[in-house]
Every structure is written in C-alpha cells, then in structure tokens.
Amino acid sequence: MKMPTSNITFGKTGSSIKVIPVDEVSLEARAASLATRSIKTSSKKAALHLTIRCIDLTTLEGADTPEKVASLCQKAKRPDPSNHDVPSVAAVCVYPEMVHHAVEATRNSKVKVASVAGAFPSGLSTIEARTADISDAVKRGADEIDIVLNRSAFLSGDEQRAFEEIVASKDACGEAHLKVILEVGELGSYDKIRQASMLAMAAGADFIKTSTGKIPQASSLPRVLCMAEAVRDFAYQTNISVGIKAAGGIRTAKQAWHYLVVIGETLGSEWLNPEMFRIGASGLLNDVLLQLNRLDSGSYSGPDYVTVD
C-alpha cells in the first residue's frame, strides 16, 4: 500500500511542507526499544554532564518571588558548589515579570534567560496582547522566548491562524530565540503532533517544545521521538535545523538519558548540545547531582545532600 502523504501549505508565500502520517505502533515500539539502551559506567559521567548542560532550569509558579528566582539562578550557575567539574545549566526559564531579576542574577555567566510569554499556558488572548507580552519580555532582557501554539485554532482546523500567530510572535522576538510549545498532551494523536511540529517550524520556530508542564499529560519518549522525526524531515526538506526541548515530567537522570538516546539516534550527535536540545525541568537537576555523587563516591546518595528548591 502506498503511504498517503499530505501537503500542508502555510503562509502568504504559499510555501508547502510535506507531512507524512505517523505509524503509531512502530513509533512506540522504537521509543520503547531506545529506552532499553544501557549506558556504560564509563560514559555515565559524560551523559550526566551533557544532561546538566542541556537543562532549562525552570520555575513557573504563581508563588515565584525575586528571591526564589535569584536562588534558582545561583543553582543554575553552580549546580554543585563543592565540585568545579559540574557545568552550569543552559538557561533559567521564568515568567516575564521575573526576567529582569534573572538577568541580574545571571550576569557574567553563560546561563541564558528564557521567559515564557504570550498568554502562557493557554495562549488564549488576542494576538496583539501576546506579541506585546513577548516584546516586553525581550525588552526586560530575555534571550529566549517560550510561547504556546494556539491549540484552539490548530485543533479547530484554522491552521493558518495558528501559523500566522507564530510568525507574528517570531517578529516580536527580534533577536531572541523562539521556542514554540506544542502542548502535545492536548493534541490527541501523533499525527497532530507531527503536523503541529511542521507548522511551528515552517512558521520560524528556533525550537519546538513538548509541553507547558501545566497539564498532567506532558512529555513522553514516543512523543519526543515523533517530534524529532518531524525535525529530521523538516531539515531534509528545507535544510533548516530546528532544536527540540522536552519539558514536563522529566525527573530522573535515567529518563533524561533516554531522551538523549532518542535525540542522538534520530537526529545525530549534532543535536546533542544545548544549542539544539534542551530539557525543561526543576527536580531533574537534583537527581543528576545525586547520580554524580554516586559515581564519585561509590555509594548511594540521598536528597539530604542537595539543596531544597
């Protein structure tokens, strides 16, 4: 049987992107098999360091305070103050209101500041309000902007509007990197995840991101594999390399390794760096530090030996 393909035409320019349907069974089987890949002890330290370098250390709580953000930034810069080998994380991710505090606290370090913007987490306000929110976050000094896909428009068939809103958001970003959150848990099927990925990339996203972390159905290995395959297809078709950010529900070093394996096997080692791959998490960093302690000391560590966030 011939595989049915659909061409989705986005935008005023009429540029056309081919979207291939997803084979759900094979996708899940492949993700499951990649998750059984073992990492040898000799490679563990490198994998743990890479994980830390790819983390977007995140706090997106209504109860966030400038002080909490400042202490998060300290942790981002020096995750383990007792060990100079441990690298700093890629970025801190905060609400726009907290951006300038984060910028202040990360000055003179390589840690970038990412801000969610554009009526996070629903994306349901007027596009004018959303782009104003983005410009504001950029003005406050954010290096990266995480916006949400308008799932309401996308799922009701108005892909064009969802597309144009991302284009407008990209304009509002200026120099800042744009990450588009698909909220895969709300999309309902792998086909939709793939379409949404293609749409976001065609609209100019620098990164596509799985989830907001605000709904229980968040990132999962098959979903990220599905997005990685979309990124690969997009690169074949357009020669543009787009990054991936997995977020939501990633709490253990082991889970993070599985993501590294999926990205490495699907997109190659060019994607295994903080420029092309990120993990959005808050609790993950502590678990990675515990695993590093375990490697160094030989005995199992415990939560008493890392900071309480």
């Binding site: 005995s299 199992y300 415990g302 008493d304």
Partner: peptide, 8 residues
C-alpha cells in the same frame, strides 16, 4: 550497600 547508602 545498606551501610554505605547516605539516605539510610
């Protein structure tokens, strides 16, 4: 492992 585990 029991005596060495820091969380015991």
């Amino acid at each position: 492992w029991m005596v060495g585990h820091l969380d015991v």
